[in-house]
């Protein structure tokens, strides 16, 4: 049986047996390369599930949407390792109950084949995530980041100025990000208006930098934001850099356990303090 056939079987059993209320997965989209999120609520409907190399979207953000799941009952969801880390973070931040989530975990292996990861609750994957921390995946970003870091701060500023000038403030990055679940985002506060809502260079810089910082130590680099951006801003460069900062400054790898204290909302005795004292 292929991984997909096995997953479909599991999904059908979960639904038919009344073990879950909904299975969040993927189905075919408008073109051959596109996939759509599907919310399967019956065993028959599970036939439309697909799983292949085009299924890159991190679906875990839907776990905090009341229209999809009210937080009660049980939900099953297709997740890659980034999705597992997402669930850990959302649990650590008190947004969801990880015991109510059945994980249908998979990995996109190099040649785009699907590898089923054994387990069904977050705790089953603790070892897998620990390994990710010590053996970070190779990314294509390494070369680009190296190039950026060889630039002077002024040159780097100009690079980002140019990138952020494209921003149209559609907030697709925010809406696609599973960690952006605030019901009222900081940019939607207007007493006072902390961040310029206008899509001019200053406002765009403020928005993108603030969002990057609000994700420092929380971003698990699923790539949803960069894929969602309609104007191709290379957000993953920022995310990668800040994730590296969190690791170097606080030995913090986001989403390692569902009870992991958030990096910027907790204090350890050995936290670096050279900039305070």
């Amino acid at each position: 049986m292929t991984a997909l056939e096995n997953f479909k079987k599991r999904a059908k059993e979960l639904l038919a047996g009344g073990h879950v209320d909904v299975v969040i997965g993927y189905r075919l989209g408008t073109t051959a390369e596109l996939r759509r999120t599907v919310f399967v609520r019956s065993a028959e409907a599970a036939d439309q599930l697909v799983l292949d190399g085009h299924c890159r979207e991190n679906l875990a953000g839907y776990l905090t949407r009341p229209e999809v799941w009210d937080g009660e009952g049980v939900v099953a969801i297709f997740v890659q390792p980034a999705g597992i880390r997402t669930i850990n973070i959302l649990a650590a931040e008190g947004q969801i109950d990880p015991q109510r989530i059945t994980l249908l975990a998979f990995e996109l292996a190099g040649s785009e084949a699907i590898k089923e990861l054994p387990g069904s609750s977050v705790d089953d994957f603790a070892g897998l995530i620990e390994n990710l921390k010590s053996q970070p995946a190779e990314t294509d970003l390494a070369a680009e980041i190296e190039k950026l870091e060889s630039l002077s701060p002024q040159q780097r500023f100009e690079f980002w100025q140019e990138q952020f000038s494209k921003c149209i403030r559609c907030y697709a990055c925010r809406q696609a990000c599973p960690m952006c679940y605030c019901r009222r985002c900081i940019v939607e506060q207007n007493q006072p208006q902390w961040i310029c809502a206008s899509a001019h260079d200053l406002g765009n810089f403020e928005w993108n930098i603030v969002r990057a910082f609000h994700l420092a130590g929380r971003c698990i680099e699923c790539g949803n934001c960069e894929r969602a951006c309609p104007v191709n801003i290379p957000l993953m460069l920022l995310n990668r850099r800040l994730a590296r900062e969190a690791l170097e400054a606080f030995d913090h790898f986001a989403g390692i356990r569902p009870d992991q204290p958030p990096a910027l909302a907790s204090f350890k005795q050995d936290d670096p303090q050279h900039f305070i004292l």
């Binding site: 759509r36 999120t37 599907v38 919310f39 953000g61 839907y62 229209e67 999809v68 149209i168 403030r169 559609c170 907030y171 697709a172 925010r174 809406q175 696609a176 969602a228 309609p230």
Partner: peptide, 17 residues
């Protein structure tokens, strides 16, 4: 309406483009 919009993220891409 709820069936069609279930996966909608509520961003502004469609309206802005």
């Amino acid at each position: 309406w709820s069936q069609m919009s279930e996966r909608c993220l509520g961003c502004g891409v469609c309206t802005y483009m």
